[in-house]
Structure formats: structure tokens, C-alpha cells
Design a protein around this nucleic acid. Structure first.
Lengths: 215, 215
DNA sequence: GTCTATACCCGGATAGAC
DNA sequence: GTCTATCCGGGTATAGAC
């Protein structure tokens, strides 16, 4: 036995607790307003100890984002096992629905796109970049397949669709609608899935062939 | 004469220069990383003088956002004078195109949605809230009209469409695509307009009536 | 109203004992 | 590895002379 040393298990548990604390603070305050002191307090250890695990604030954020990517990859893997979903477009819809539910659950961290220091640190983080590429490859296959089947707009380059899906995963519209408190959460999810795939334009009415009405 | 005192004109010019400096810094660094020192340097005056015009960093951001709303309202007004655009949906498309061009020109400031101090300051700023309501009313009329004409999805509540339009005005997808440097800017704009109104799903092909081809 | 200089505080990171 | 205590840069805001 002794396959995994006890010490290491404790380490893992602690680091998981830290990353979850980071996640909560990223959700509630955002990256810039998240303080390392706050993370330490939330995770229940001192700041100095925290720095033994993660060497900088950027590393903390990278760990949280890596965990998010891992969750997404796991979700993709799980969807693949369910043979009920044959076509690629349905898979992508399910995935979008999943990201919206993660948002609703208050578990979706989002980082500022403009902070060059942070983005540089992310690009330098192999754990993060490897996962990002892995997920993008998985989604890219679905996207191309769906376009081939005529289920996704073939006019749009696959990367445009990919980035759009990433953007919808942290779209502020959901937070605003939820904050207004005037709608059922299930409705919000359906509206956003609909607007992502069909846009805000009217669904095209297929008029009877005999006579085309004047709109 | 002397309708407007000379002093006041100078004041206005100076404050305009300040607001434009704020705008540039909000675009390049974002709110949190924008420093008041930086604004003062960019606008060409000292920090202490700057505080004689604007009482806080939040007020600076509010002034920049107010100016953006004024630009948008002016754009709406201008579109209305052009009788070439009859229907409401076309008006909204034109407006989205305008927001994307503002983004491409590097003139679109965007604030973090999570910063409660800042959002509280914005809500307390009449100049800002009045303009926001004014713009929302204008857009709301177009949205409802377009839905009535069957040109916008009537399933979506008007506010969902409104918030979606606001969100697309600062959608990170454009920045990412632009940064990749692999596409023409005009193409990017068209793709994003398309995905906003038609979604990423395939455009419905209207097959000839006689015989529907197998895709 | 503009400047220089500074008060004040906060946050990231580290030292050094245990 | 964990803690307490501290360093230090930098950011907001202000004082006070001109």
C-alpha cells in the first residue's frame, strides 16, 4: 500500500480548499479586488503559508481557471458517454446550458481580459494553457462537425464560434437578469441558449409554399 | 454677447481633455488598473488640479461612461434623421454595427461589473443614470416595434434583448479576433452582427418549394 | 485653479522563529 | 509548513503655497 503518502493527501486537500476560496472570491469580487489576505482568510490559513503553496496572486487565479477548464473537459467527457446525444450541435447546446448553470450557481470565475500582467502569467502557465488547448480541440471538433451537418452557421469561421461560446460562458447578461429577480432561472437559461444559437432575430417562419405573404 | 464666459469655455475644454484621457486609459488598462496619476499625466495636468474637477476616481469613470451614452444617443438621433431606414430592426443592426466600430477604433470603455463601490457610485450619478434611462427608452421602442413586426424574436422579453445589445457593445470576442490579426476588420464586424441577430446556428435554408433537396 | 509635496492606507510579498 | 510581524511599492486623496 502506501500508494499515496498521507502528507501528500493533506497537501492536496489544503490546496483544493485554497483554490475553491479563490474561486469564490473571483466570482464575488473579481480578480483586481480579490486580495491575497482575503484568500488566506477564506481558506483558513495565514498569508505566508499560502505563499508556500502558490508563489503569486497570478498563480492563484491560474489555478482557479485551470480547475474550471478541468470541470469543462470532464463535462465534455461525460456528455460523450451519453449516446443519447448523437449530433454535435446538440452536444454544444448541452454544454452551453451547463456553463449557464455554473454561472447561476455562482461558480463561474471570470478574469479581466485587459490585464496584461495576468494574461502573461496565464500564458506562461503550462497547466492552464494545456487544458485550454485540450478543451478548444474538443470543442473545435464538435463545431466543425456541426457545420458539416448544416447545424451550425458555416459562414462563421470555427474560431469565431469557439470564442463566442467562451464569451457566453461568462456573459454578463445572465448576471443582470438574475439580479433583476424578475424571472425564473430556468427561463433565463433557455432565453440565453436561444439567443446564442438563434440570435435575437426572429425565428424564420416557413411560410406555406402556395403564396408568400407580404412579410 | 458674452453668452458663455470665456473662463467656462476653457473649463469645458479642459474637462473634455480629462474625460478623453480617462476613456483612453479605461480602454487600454481597464478601471482597476487605471490610476489617477496616469489620468493626470495623460491629460497634462497635476493630480491635485484634477481633483478640483472630479472629486474621485469613480466620478472620472462615470464621466467617461456618460460621454459614451451621449455618443450613443446622438448616434440614435442621427439614424432617425436618415429616412432610408424604415424598420426598427434595421436601425438596431446599424446601431450594433456602430458599437462594433467604436470598439475597433479603441474607443469603447468598459467597466468591471463586479465592483460594488463603482456600480454604487454610478447609480448615484444622475448624469449617468439619466442618460442610461434615456438610451434604454429609445432602444426599447425599437425593440418592441421590431418584435411587433416579426423582425425580432418575440419569445425573448424586451429587456433580454436590450441587455444583450448592451453586452455585445463590449463583447470580448471582437478584441480576441482583432488581436489574432488573422482577419479583416470588416469581416469581423459582419460576423459579429450576424451572430448577434442570427446566432451561431445555421441560417435556415429556404428550399425551393417544388422538391426539397436532401440538404 | 494650478502646482509640489506629503499624509495615509492598503496590498503583495518576505523574514525568521517555531 | 505554519505562524506573526514586517517591508515596501504604489495608489487615493489632501495640504498649502503661489
Amino acid at each position: 500500500m502506501a500508494s499515496i503518502p498521507y502528507r501528500e493527501q493533506v497537501l492536496r486537500l489544503r490546496e483544493d480548499a485554497i483554490v475553491e476560496a479563490v474561486n469564490r472570491l473571483l466570482v464575488s469580487k473579481g480578480y483586481e479586488l480579490m486580495t491575497v489576505d482575503g484568500v488566506a482568510a477564506e481558506a483558513g490559513l495565514s498569508k505566508a503559508s499560502l505563499y508556500k503553496h502558490f508563489s503569486s496572486k497570478e498563480e492563484l487565479a491560474a489555478a482557479a481557471m485551470t480547475r474550471l477548464l478541468e470541470r469543462a473537459i470532464a463535462q465534455v467527457a461525460e456528455q460523450r458517454t451519453q449516446a443519447s446525444q448523437a449530433d454535435a450541435r446538440a452536444q454544444l447546446e448541452t454544454l452551453v446550458r451547463w456553463t449557464l448553470k455554473v454561472q447561476l450557481a455562482g461558480e463561474m470565475p471570470s478574469l479581466p481580459a485587459a490585464n496584461s500582467r495576468l494574461t502573461a502569467a496565464l500564458r506562461a502557465n503550462r497547466n492552464y494553457t494545456d487544458r485550454l488547448i485540450e478543451l478548444s480541440d474538443l470543442l473545435g471538433k464538435w463545431i466543425v462537425a456541426a457545420q458539416g451537418e448544416g447545424a451550425l452557421d458555416a459562414v462563421l469561421p470555427p474560431e469565431v464560434i469557439l470564442y463566442t461560446l467562451y464569451a457566453r460562458a461568462c456573459d454578463p447578461v445572465l448576471a443582470v437578469l438574475k439580479a433583476s429577480g424578475q424571472h425564473d432561472e430556468a427561463d433565463i437559461v433557455e432565453w440565453l441558449v436561444r439567443s446564442t444559437f438563434q440570435g435575437i432575430g426572429a425565428a424564420v417562419k416557413i411560410a406555406p409554399c402556395a403564396a408568400s405573404s407580404g412579410r
